[in-house]
């Protein structure tokens, strides 16, 4: 008997979690962005994606062939500018924000896209 009560409680909790998650996502406004980011390799990809995942960004995927990043974010928590800045801060130029020379200098030699390193 006690176990079945426990079980119903767990079941109830579970449903409220699902319903909560659903509602939560509907209230937030979610936007998708796609813009160019310079980079040349797998290490760049990791760095760019990691940098883009600031608070409010749900997903970030960069493709080295197209040089494009796809970002999905919540407009309540962050904005386009902040994402560009975060990526530039990691040393990668975006379409709107250029990385500072200091930030660029931090990159590994294999990632120096400004110095003629090819996509590899």
């Amino acid at each position: 008997m006690r176990t079945s009560i426990l079980f119903s409680v767990i079941l109830g909790l579970f449903f409220s979690v699902v319903v909560f998650a659903e509602n939560g996502e509907k209230k937030k406004k979610v936007e998708t962005l796609e813009f160019e980011v310079s980079g040349v390799c797998g290490a760049c990809e990791k760095r760019i994606e990691k940098a883009a995942l600031i608070k409010g960004v749900k997903m970030a995927e960069w493709d080295k062939q197209t040089q494009k990043i796809k970002v999905i974010y919540s407009t309540k928590k962050t904005d386009e500018k902040a994402i560009h800045q975060a990526i530039a801060k990691a040393g990668h130029d975006t379409k709107k924000v250029k990385a500072t020379d200091e930030a660029y200098a931090q990159l590994n030699d294999c990632c120096k896209y400004r110095d003629g390193v090819e996509i590899h």
Binding site: V18, A21, E25, K55, V57, K58, A60
Partner: peptide, 17 residues
Amino acid sequence: IYQSIIGNTNHEFKTGV
């Protein structure tokens, strides 16, 4: 099965009955 994320894609979950 319901699958989604918590915050960003570094935290994924699957839940269901």
